[in-house]
Structures are given as C-alpha cells and as structure tokens.
Amino acid sequence: MIYKKDANFPYPILTNSSFDYEESEFYFDIELIENSEYYQFVIETTLTSSFIKTLLDLQKVELILIVQAKDNKFYPLKGLNDIIFIPKSRVSLNKRTTLQLQIRAKAQINFSANHELSLFYIQFKDKMNVEKNGTLGFSNIITFDSSNKKSYDLFEKKVDPNLLSEIKIELSTETIVIYYRNEEMQFAGLPHPINNLYVYMGLRTALQQFVLLFAEEGDECVYLNDINTPEEGLYLKLHQLMKQKGVEEISMDNLDAVIYQISDHIITKFTHTVRGLEGSAI
C-alpha cells in the first residue's frame, strides 16, 4: 500500500515532506517500457542520505517498489537503480496505477551513525532503533494512467428529454456533465462562448464538490500542496489544473476567484458573444 499521509512516527523517517532528516531527499523516477508479455519499470532513485545508502550497501535495508493498482504488489530492488519486470497477466495499467518506494529494515537498525537527523533527534541517536520490517522512509509517488478517451476532457454534454429541469449539472468520475433537456439549449450553430455560462456553472459545481471532498474534517479551506493527489479523474484534473495555474488554496469563499484564475475570461467572452449577436440581429 502506498503511504502518503504526514504523521508523527515513533522515530525519525526520511520523506520529502518531513523535517526529521535535516536535508536528505528520497526521490525516484520511472521509465515504462512495454512488450507483449511484460511491463518493464526502469527505476532511477535519488537518495541523498549517506546513512541509508551505507545501510543499502551493507544490505541491512532494501528498497521495495510498491505497485498499487487494483491490488498491491511488492518488489525488492537490487539497488538504487533497477529494472522490474512484471508480467501483464499480473498487473494492468488500464486503471490508475501508483508506485512508491519504501525503505525496509532487513534487521534491527541503530541510528548512532546517522548524522543527518534534525537537532532534537541527534541527542537520542545512539539509543534509537528501528526494528526489522520497519520502514525507514518512503519516496514520492508516481502515477500512471493509460490514456483513455476522457483523460483530458473536463466537460461533456448530453441531451436528456426526460430531464425534470431544463438543464442539470452532474459530476461523473471523469468529467463535468451538462445535461440539456433539449438540443436547442446547446445553441448549436451559434458562437461557442454563448455556452460559457454553463461552463461557469459546471466549474463552480465541481469546485464546490472539490472543497467538500478534500477539506480536512472541519476545515473550510483546501491547501492544494498539502493534500494527496486525488485518485478520481475529475478531481485529479481539477487539482492539476489549479496547481498549474498557481492556485494555492481553495474554499467556498474564493471559488469565483479560482475560476477566474484557471480559465480564460469565460464571462467576458460570453458578454462579447451576446453583444455580437445582438448587433447582428438588428
């Protein structure tokens, strides 16, 4: 299982968000190669802790690749760089697949030789032990998602004559779906921005749901750098889009500001379009 939640462990751990180690970093990257039988994950690890590197050399710890899709699989690595072959009969990248490295203690580890710890821990380092099978740290997370049609789509439109309302906005796992009761409401043939009002409503609905889902219990605000990358397509897209556009926090209070930030003058374009139509109608 991929672990990503920041918490206070009973000993210092090496992660990219914890300050337990003063400076050390632990990243990996993957190149994916596919043939008809296997996936090859070509792994390249950046580990700047000499303490842990030494332990790796001494084979007191090992790196374990965790592959989490529909279930979990573990693969010990031979070193910082390795290639892991996984038969296609045992892993599918059709759905979202996440990968992470864990540093596993193969025996009890004492921290006396660890000079990279933050001040507080340094004072106890000689007496600090991590038991066999414990984690000493975990890496960043890499996600693969094979491109299905909707991977980059944010909106869908549909016509449903049986709709009880005139339009309806629904959030599907991948997209914001705008249902129209009849086709005429889609303004086919008229300039596209005339539909921007619906885009705006759809975005607002989706972002509201985003806040509700990702705000910590009792919180009003979601800090985008602080939450785990969402699993579900729609929220992943919104999350990445907002991050790309430099949005740092989102709450019910700044939804409109966020829409302004992530989109390109939706309402202005709408206004210009309507004015244009008005002119041509005379």
Partner: peptide, 21 residues
C-alpha cells in the same frame, strides 16, 4: 463524450500539460 466548447479545448490542453503525458 465530445468537446464542449473552444474554452474546453483550452482546458484540455492545459490539463494535458498539467497531467504530464
């Protein structure tokens, strides 16, 4: 699915960029 609006195409490009293809 179909592309909703030109605005959406811009979104799509940005999402593609943001998601890293």
């Amino acid at each position: 699915s179909d592309i909703l609006y030109t605005t959406e195409i811009q979104f799509k490009k940005q999402i593609e960029k943001a998601l890293g293809t």
